[in-house]
Design a protein around this nucleic acid. Structure first.
Lengths: 221, 221
DNA sequence: TATCATTTTTACCGTTTGGTCAAATCTCTT
DNA sequence: AAGAGATTTGACCAAACGGTAAAAATGATA
């Protein structure tokens, strides 16, 4: 398995990109996101990606020289999206505000980028063969940093005692669930295919859950 | 896509099973669980399943007549495992006890059957092509029933006001996360491959989270 | 130990898969 | 309008894919 490091485009490592190049690369990446996020890396096929992108397979391979290269390109973009909401947590705000807005950012991310979320989930389920390094280095480092902030709040009595890392796990899982398990959510709630109206209820539920007791000075009554 | 309904075994629909038959079917199912749970239905191959089961592919197909039949057999077994903890929730207990023990049952299920959990997650990510009916009928019905219990508690002031279905989503996601995203959990916590020592911390975190405020009369101090 | 059903293997089949190649077409610049 | 470079296509390939047929090997039973 090739882990991601430096991304290199296919036609002409150097010269700036053509209009057609830019258009087609986005089309391919969009189609690939659709297919990879549904079936995972092994379950996806170049034929399906090409068909979704309305493009012949050899033409697709003119822009990305392998299935893996497309996947790596998607994952690279994804990791920024994934980390962005976490980075914003500040040690200077009120715990309730910081956690509350982090939850809202993550939920918003689930609503806006459900396929990216499923792409990430698929990679996890497969054992993170392509982004293991990222998890161990970049992510771990950022989590350590943010966990320290939480721990500080706990020590000051501004946050209920708990394991900061597991608090993050709880936030990640509950928010991503609405993207990754949206089929189940919709079926249980009796909603149609494209209906994502449950996000308002989700915000309310998760704020009640995470801010109700974990952050003592705040009352949600 | 074939939805599951009645399961039929391959050799001899009627006569009782041989020792060899029983042994080989379990070996196959175990190997298939390993492969399907990592790569999903499309990403899994009969060759890999056969290799994992230390069996030739035609021999494997002597016991199950298609890839799909193996998958259906696994999903059928899975659904019972998945529903069991939910069924146990009783309207007669204390909200804090019922929710607390439900969380512990779900966490225990994640620890004991992580591959089953990932199999389920893969099916969700793919859009539930095989168990869509189950979600809409059996699961929805059971959820409606249990949600009514929660709603009763809310009306009696024994549970903080919230959407009962979304409360269930939160419990499902947080508990299953430890099985489905175990790679991420381990990497972030800096643990080794097989190390699942984080489950104790998880119990503690989730009890703090779900029982801290949602259930007012109980104090976790 | 002979017999019969069960189990396993070997050799295969048609299709799908990821990927290549050279020729054909298109686009942009001059 | 012509030439060069960028783009697209059709024909193809070897390997992997899900699955089959029939013979060979094994197991149970009398």
């Amino acid at each position: 398995m090739t882990e991601i490091s430096a991304s290199s485009e296919s036609p002409n490592e150097k010269r700036s990109k053509t209009r057609i190049q830019r258009e087609n690369e986005t089309r391919i990446l969009l189609a690939a996101l659709e297919v990879f996020s549904e079936n995972g890396f092994r379950g996806a096929t170049l034929d399906r990606i090409a068909a979704t992108a309305k493009m012949s397979k050899p033409n697709l391979l003119y822009y990305f020289k392998s299935k893996e290269e497309i996947h790596v390109a998607l994952l690279t973009d994804l990791l920024d999206v994934w980390l962005a909401p976490l980075r914003e947590i500040s040690p200077h705000g009120e715990p309730a505000d910081e956690i509350g807005s982090y939850i809202r950012r993550k939920l918003e991310s689930s609503r806006q980028f459900p396929r990216e979320s499923r792409l990430f989930a698929n990679e996890m389920l497969a054992g993170a063969p392509h982004i293991g390094d990222f998890l161990q280095s970049e992510l771990k480092q950022l989590v350590d940093e943010k966990a320290a902030i939480f721990q500080g709040w706990i020590d000051e009595g501004r946050l209920a005692p708990c394991d900061p890392r597991h608090l993050l796990f709880a936030i990640w899982s509950t928010t991503q669930h609405y993207a990754d398990f949206s089929v189940q959510v919709r079926h249980v709630l009796g909603l149609q295919q494209g209906d994502v109206s449950y996000y308002e209820e989700a915000v309310s539920m998760l704020e009640t859950l995470f801010l109700g007791r974990l952050v003592p000075p705040v009352s949600t009554d």
